[in-house]
Write a protein that binds this DNA or RNA. Sequence first.
DNA 1: TCGTTGACTGCAACCGGTTGCATTCGCGGC
DNA 2: GCCGCGAATGCAACCGGTTGCAGTCAACGA
Lengths: 338, 338
Amino acid sequence: MDKRPTMSDVARLAGVHKATASRALNPATSGQVNPATARRILAVAKQLGYTPNTTARSLRTSRTLTVGVLIPDLTNPLFPPIVRGIENVLFPRGYTALVANTDNDAEREAAHFDTLLGRQVDGFILATGRRTHPLVQSAHDRGIATVLVNRGTDPPMFPLVTGDDTAGITAVVDHLAELGHRRIAHLAGPVTLSTGHARTKAYLNAVAAHGIPPSVVETSTYSAPAGFDAMRKVLDAADPLPTAVVAANDLIALGALRAIRAHGLSCPDDISLTGFNDMPFLDELSPPLTSVRVPQYELGTESARLLLEQMDGGPAVAKTLTLPVRLVLRGSTAPPSR
Amino acid sequence: MDKRPTMSDVARLAGVHKATASRALNPATSGQVNPATARRILAVAKQLGYTPNTTARSLRTSRTLTVGVLIPDLTNPLFPPIVRGIENVLFPRGYTALVANTDNDAEREAAHFDTLLGRQVDGFILATGRRTHPLVQSAHDRGIATVLVNRGTDPPMFPLVTGDDTAGITAVVDHLAELGHRRIAHLAGPVTLSTGHARTKAYLNAVAAHGIPPSVVETSTYSAPAGFDAMRKVLDAADPLPTAVVAANDLIALGALRAIRAHGLSCPDDISLTGFNDMPFLDELSPPLTSVRVPQYELGTESARLLLEQMDGGPAVAKTLTLPVRLVLRGSTAPPSR
DNA sequence: TCGTTGACTGCAACCGGTTGCATTCGCGGC
DNA sequence: GCCGCGAATGCAACCGGTTGCAGTCAACGA
C-alpha cells in the first residue's frame, strides 16, 4: 500500500547503517558482517517483507540481470521451446529474459534491439536467423555478450548454437533414395535465411551423391501458404512429376500437402513428402508427416549456457555448437508407385 | 566499447547543465527549454549516439515501463498469440513485457511473481487461469495495476478479459444435438482451472436443456496424455458408449482421438469429437477437428489495453470483458451411426 | 604494556537520470 | 526609470542500493 520498505528502513530497525544491511543481505558479502548482526538484519528484513530494488542495484552495479532474446515470431511453433529452454537456464541464475518478436522485419528488429540496449540488458540471444549482421556488429562493437541461434555471421564474432541441418536433410534424402525415389524435388526456404541456405546446400550435395538431378523451388517465407504456392509451381511445371518432395520445414510441407491434394494427387501414394523441425502434432496429420526432429529446447538451454559463460567474463569465442537431429519416419514417405 | 555516453556528457558538450539536457531530451518537458538550445542538445545527443539509461530514469521516477506477464506454458499453442497481442499493444507505448512460465506450479508462480515485483514492474497480466488468489490479493494490496486473462477471482478485484466459454460449449452441444446425438460425454478440464470449471458448467446446462443425461470425466491437466487417459476411462466404463464427446480443449481432444483409435473405433463414424480453442493446424488433422475459435490475439490486445488504462491512473474497476467465440465445423462431427 | 592485526561497521561517494526551487535576464507596462 | 513577470537555465537533492576507505575495538604477540 504505502510503499515498499527500503534497505534504509531495514537498517534503521535493525540499528545498523544501511551499508551493513546491504552486506548482510547480499550472500556474496554477508561473510563480512558479524553473524549475529546478520541474523538480526535478516530477521528484520523478513518481518518487513523487504525485497531489494533491482533497479537501484542495477544502476550502481551496471548489471541488470536481464538478457534480450530476439526471435522472429513466437507463434511459430519452432520458437516457444527455444524460449523455454533459455528461461529455464537463466531464471535459476537470477536472469530474466526480455523476449521480442521481430517478424523478420529489419526495422522492428532494430527498434527492439535499441529498446533492449536502453534497458541495459547484460546480453543478447539472437535467434532471428536472418541477416543480422548490423545488429551483431553493433553488439560486438559495444562488447555485449551475445549468442546466436541457428545462424552465424560470416566473420564469426559470437558463439553459435544450431541444429545439424546438413545431417538432417542428408538423412531425409538418403531415406527417400533408399525407398527407390529417383525424382526428388526440394521446396527451399528463403535463401536469405541461414537455414534455407544450409538446407538447400545439403539437399544439392545429397542428391548429387545419389546421382539424382536436383530440382529446387524457393519459397518466399517459411509458411504454409508459401509452401502451397511453391508446390503448385512444381506440379504445374515439372514433367515428369517428382515422386518425392523434401520441404525445408514443416509449415512448407503442410502447404505442399494441401497443394498435392488440390491437384488431385495423394500423399504418399503419388508423392512422398517430408518436413523439417518435427513440430508438435505432426503425428496426428493425415498422413503423419515424416520430419527431422530438431532439439529446440536444447538449442535454448545450450545458447543460454554459452551466454552465461560470456557474461561471467568468459571470452566471446566464436565457436559453433551443432546439436544432433534425428529423422522421424512416419506415414508420408513410401516407395514410389511408378 | 569504452562506455555509453551519459546525459552529463551530452550536457557538457552542448555547454548546458545536465538538467537542461534532461528537459530537452524528454518530449514532455522539452517545451521548457529554448528551442535553439534544445536543437543544439539534440544534435549533440545524436552525434554521440546517446541513449538514455532506463535504469537510472526508473530509479528516480519509480516507473520501469515494464509489465509482468504470467502464463502457464509458452509451448501450449494457446498462449503465444495472447503474448503477441500483449506485446503489440504495449511496445508502441514504450512498455516491455517480461514473460514468465509458471507450469501451473504455485511455487514457480510465486517465485516469478516476486522476481517481477523486485524488478518493479508497473503492472501485471495474469493469464495463469489458476487459483491465483494469493498473488492477486498481493497485487491488490500493493496497489499494482493488474489485469486477469481467462480467470477472475471471487471477490472481483481487477478487470478480467475472457473468451465466452459458455457460449462456445453451448454451441458445440447444440450442434451435436442437432446432428441427432443423444449420448454426449464431456472430457472436462481440471476443475481447479477456471476454464475447466466454466466449460463443465456450460456443458451441464446445455445437455440439460436438451434433456440429455450428463456424463463427465475430469482430466488431470489440459494435455493430450490426460485426454487419452480420460477417454479410455469413458470407453472402458460407459455402456452404451457415447456417440459424441465434447473435449474441454483441443489437446484433450487429440488425446481422446488416439484413445478412440486405439480402441478400434473411428471418428467421426463411431464417435464424434470436438475440441476447444481452435489451435493451429487442426485443419490438417485426420479428421479435421471441429473446435471453438477463441480470439486469443484479441484477448492479449484487450488485456494490454485495460492494463494501460490502469497504469495511466485509471481505477482498477473489476469489469469483465467477454470476447465472442465461434464454432468452427469440421470433419470430426457427424450424425450418429447407430 | 604497547603496537599490530583483523574483524566488524560506519561514512560518503557514486551510479545516471528527474524535478522542485532558486536565480538570472530581458522586456513590457506604468 | 523602476517594477514585475515570465521564460530559460542552473543548482542540488533525491531515487535505493553498492563499495572503497577509514575508523573502532578487542584480541593477540612481543
